[in-house]
């Protein structure tokens, strides 16, 4: 099956109907070349966003605000609203944003072929991701592997080594009842994500790239849950049932190997 680049582009832009989308996803799963082309389209979206999102964080010049309010006469009590496309959730910090890794990072792309996502990661970070990366794929699902798998299983948010390669954020029960945890990789990928326990594995629900920590800062002093990319915070917001686990509940869950008692 041949698929034109325009269709792949439309797929990357979320413009296809369900049926065509499914065809593209089949093709992505079957053909690494197609997966690479789609990944490149999506990566470009992410790169462009990353290149211009910083404008959103700049203070808006007073003269523009004054111009917009010029007809209203009386001083307004309302403040500058956040721009529409940035989701404000409790976990969203000011200084992070999703970078470079594009829309498959968002939860609504949950049905996307895992092999394709892995392909996009490899596209970004190099081929050693296939063999020894923190993410692997099995039966069409993206799973934590290696150091990430270990950290998700063993590391408590309250007791993290300062030099840990994986930083655990919040742990919580999902609406489906499973345990889920957010994490950030402290390597050059700056990946952050949300993983949920699925039998004896950690299934990745969302992945995004966070802005690298400025040199000389002390990221380990950030409170748990901060510095998450907005898309991950949004995924947490959608998945969480109630409040995050406190330290005791988290330790208890680890003792039970993150199994859910029904």
């Amino acid at each position: 099956m041949t698929i034109s680049d325009d269709v792949l582009m439309a797929y990357a832009d979320g413009e296809l109907d369900l049926r065509t989308r499914a065809q593209v996803e089949d093709a992505i799963a079957a053909d690494p070349q197609i997966a690479r082309r789609v990944a490149a389209h999506q990566a470009l979206r992410g790169t462009l966003r990353a290149g211009f999102d910083k404008v959103l964080d700049e203070p808006v010049p007073d003269r523009l605000i004054a111009a917009a309010r010029a007809t209203s006469g009386a001083p307004s009590q309302s403040r500058v609203e956040p721009p529409q496309d940035r989701v404000v959730v409790p976990l969203r910090p000011r200084r992070t944003r999703t970078l470079a890794l594009p829309r498959w990072a968002l939860p609504q792309w949950g049905a996307i072929a895992a092999s394709f996502v892995l392909g996009a990661l490899v596209w970004h970070f190099g081929t050693d991701w296939y063999s020894s990366g923190p993410v692997t794929e099995r039966n069409g699902q993206l799973l934590a592997a290696g150091t990430l798998d270990k950290a998700l299983s063993n590391q408590l948010a309250s007791e993290q080594p300062t030099q840990t390669p994986v930083r655990i954020g919040v742990s919580f029960r999902s609406k489906g009842g499973d345990y889920c945890r957010t994490f950030q990789l402290r390597d050059n990928t700056s990946l952050a994500g949300l993983a949920c326990r699925d039998q004896d594995k950690w299934r990745l629900e969302a992945l995004a790239r966070s802005e690298a920590s400025p040199a000389g800062s002390h990221p380990e002093f950030r409170p748990a849950g901060s510095a998450l990319p907005a898309s991950i915070a949004q995924a947490v917001d959608q998945a969480i049932d109630g409040e995050p686990l406190d330290a005791a509940a988290e330790a208890n869950a680890r003792t039970n190997q993150w199994r859910v008692s029904h």
């Binding site: 959103l56 917009a68 010029a70 209203s72 309302s78 500058v80 609203e81 721009p83 529409q84």
Partner: peptide, 20 residues
Amino acid sequence: KALSEDLGEQIVGLLPRLRR
């Protein structure tokens, strides 16, 4: 007047995206 005030505030809210 109320309408244009409202538009002004909507524009203010959209300024970051307009600037981008």
